[in-house]
Amino acid sequence: MVEAWYMDESADDQRKPHRLEPDRPVGLEQLRQLGVFYWKLDADKYENDPELEKIRKERNYSWTDIITISKDKLPNYEEKIKMFYEEHLHLDDEIRYILDGSGYFDVRDKEDKWIRIFMEKGDMITLPAGIYHRFTLDEKNYVKAMRLFVGEPVWTAYNRPADHFDARGQYVKFLAQTA
């Protein structure tokens, strides 16, 4: 099961857990209220998993690829790690399925506080269009993930501030409705 918590404000290594003291865990329902959805799947059978196919069909995830993020597999590794950790949003949902390794997705809550979501093998997450977020590896420095898209992939990240986009406005309106 996925684990999430409110982050501290420390400037230490981004790959550390950054838990508040005392710990403030975040449950799946609180993530759902932010538009973040989670599934636990069997990553060992991702190529022929009926559960994954069902989710893809229901949510119209028609395009996939696989990315490996590690020093020896990803060109321009250091530059990419910095880019992934810049606070940004996308105009489409971001869907990631962890096939191996682990890392963190950080998302902003309704009060603009960071929530850290620990992702490991078998975890699949959907971040809604317009949510400010970022990604980093944990201290193992390795993740292999499937990226899923509705239609053709769009790779554009818009660093904060990006409040002028319709996707951000729609997301803010969604948050107001779930309050």
Rank of each mutant, 00 (worst) to 15 (best):
V107Q: 11
E3P: 01
A162I: 06
W39D: 01
E152T: 14
K73D: 12
D44N: 14
M119F: 08
S10Y: 07
H133A: 00
T68R: 04
F174L: 04
K80N: 14
L175M: 04
N76T: 09
Y61C: 02
I98R: 05
M1D: 13
S62R: 06
I69L: 14
S10K: 02
R32V: 01
E9V: 11
V143R: 07
V2Q: 08
D44Y: 04
T156P: 02
K113A: 12
A145R: 09
D13Y: 07
H90W: 10
F105A: 00
K113H: 12
K110W: 00
N159I: 08
D109V: 03
E21S: 15
F135G: 00
P75G: 08
D112T: 05
Y61Q: 02
K16N: 11
A157Q: 11
I81R: 13
E139Y: 05
D92I: 12
D92A: 13
R96Y: 06
R59C: 05
A11L: 14
L148R: 05
E86C: 11
K73Y: 09
P161R: 13
F174Q: 05
R15I: 06
D109Y: 00
I69H: 02
N60D: 14
G130F: 08
Y142A: 10
K73W: 07
K80G: 06
V172I: 13
I125C: 02
D166C: 03
F84R: 03
A145W: 03
R24G: 05
W63L: 12
G169C: 09
V26P: 06
T136L: 08
K54C: 11
D163H: 12
Y77Q: 03
I69T: 06
G101T: 04
W63N: 14
A162Q: 11
I66H: 04
T64E: 15
L20P: 06
D163Y: 09
A4E: 10
P22N: 03
F84M: 03
P128Y: 08
K71W: 10
Q177L: 12
D65L: 03
W5L: 10
W39G: 00
R96I: 02
P75S: 02
L89E: 01
L41N: 00
Y6W: 10
V36N: 05
I95G: 00
I55V: 01
W63K: 15
P17A: 13
I115C: 06
R96E: 01
Y142V: 09
G35T: 04
L34P: 12
R147H: 08
Y77R: 01
D65P: 02
M1P: 10
D44F: 10
I131V: 12
K16M: 15
